[in-house]
């Protein structure tokens, strides 16, 4: 039973990480990125390329992948997505939907439709004995690393002038510009950060299970569920939203093997029904 719940928490931490990037672009910038899942899968492929080329453990590919995704995110926002600001949520939604299809099919051209995974090496099988059961070192490490990633992101967006600038821009980009904030640059940095923290999620995903070019939309659903469950605008809300999702799936899986993802979705819909703003929604602040 404890093993079951722990497993749910570990899977949930992965969902939280899927959601962390979205919590930035969606929760703070109110920009809907429907290609988020495909960008996570793209990061996983980049990590795969790095491990193949350099023969390193996937964990050490993180700096490369995060840097590449930072550049990709900055350029994407600067060149494409900033053109849709101030035209309501629909154009961004449509552009990122198009982008999702482009990315999926480009990955299929580049990497074929086969599933891949990242080899975790010796850390993959190591376990800590804890009385009657044992927990894997890798999931525990992922969990702690996820906590760290959330803490860092929260610090950046809650405590720095950059974070304030992002929130001011999303509240009212015209006034923010009047106040001397270079809104185009600020939003581009925010998407860059969103995608580089998603690289962590991508590497953990690849080490834990497999990925394929079409795997993005399902990850994106989990990511959005974590963000909406937690409450828009709350970074820690997303963390607990992801954990709740993981727990719901683990309990569902224990009831019947086919019931896992369904249980997660049903919990999400129930929260939407009773608390549409999410569990930890706050209008301002983080």
């Amino acid at each position: 039973m404890i093993e079951l719940l722990l497993n749910g928490l570990f899977v949930g931490a992965l969902y939280s990480l899927f959601g962390l990037g979205l919590a930035v672009t969606f929760g703070l910038m109110q920009q809907i990125n429907l290609a988020h899942g495909d960008m996570i899968v793209l990061s996983a492929y980049l990590a795969w390329l790095a491990t193949q080329a350099l023969g390193i453990n996937p964990l050490f590919s993180l700096p490369f992948v995060a840097l590449l995704m930072f550049a990709f995110g900055y350029a994407l926002q600067r060149v494409v997505l900033n053109r849709t600001i101030g035209r309501g949520p629909m154009p961004t939604l449509l552009v990122t939907f198009g982008l999702s299809i482009v990315l999926q099919n480009m990955m299929q051209i580049g990497f074929s439709a086969d599933t891949r995974s990242l080899q975790p090496g010796s850390i993959g099988s190591a376990a800590l004995p804890l009385g009657s059961f044992s927990i894997g070192v890798m999931p525990l490490f992922f969990f702690l690393f996820a906590c760290l990633a959330f803490a860092c992101t929260w610090l950046v967006f809650a405590k720095t002038s950059f974070g304030r600038a992002v929130r001011a821009t999303s509240d009212d980009h015209r006034t923010a510009r009047l106040m001397g904030i270079e809104t185009g640059h600020i939003f581009s940095l925010a998407l860059a950060i969103s995608l580089s923290v998603s690289a962590i999620a991508a590497i953990f995903l690849g080490m834990r299970s497999t990925f394929a070019p079409a795997a993005g939309p399902e990850r994106m659903l989990f990511a959005f569920e974590a963000v909406i469950l937690g409450g828009l605008g709350s970074i820690w809300g997303t963390f607990f939203g992801g954990l709740a999702l993981g727990l719901a799936q683990a309990i569902g899986l224990a009831i019947a093997p086919t019931f896992g993802p369904l249980a997660g979705h049903l919990v999400f819909l129930a929260v939407l029904l009773f608390r549409p703003a999410g569990m930890f929604a706050r209008r301002n602040g983080l």
Binding site: V80, L94, V95, S100, I101, V102, M106, Q108, I109
Partner: peptide, 16 residues
């Protein structure tokens, strides 16, 4: 897949 890449890019261009 190339066809989907072209359609996706077209959709993005038209939206913007």
């Amino acid at each position: 897949p190339g066809y989907f890449v072209i359609s996706g890019l077209l959709a993005i261009t038209v939206t913007i």
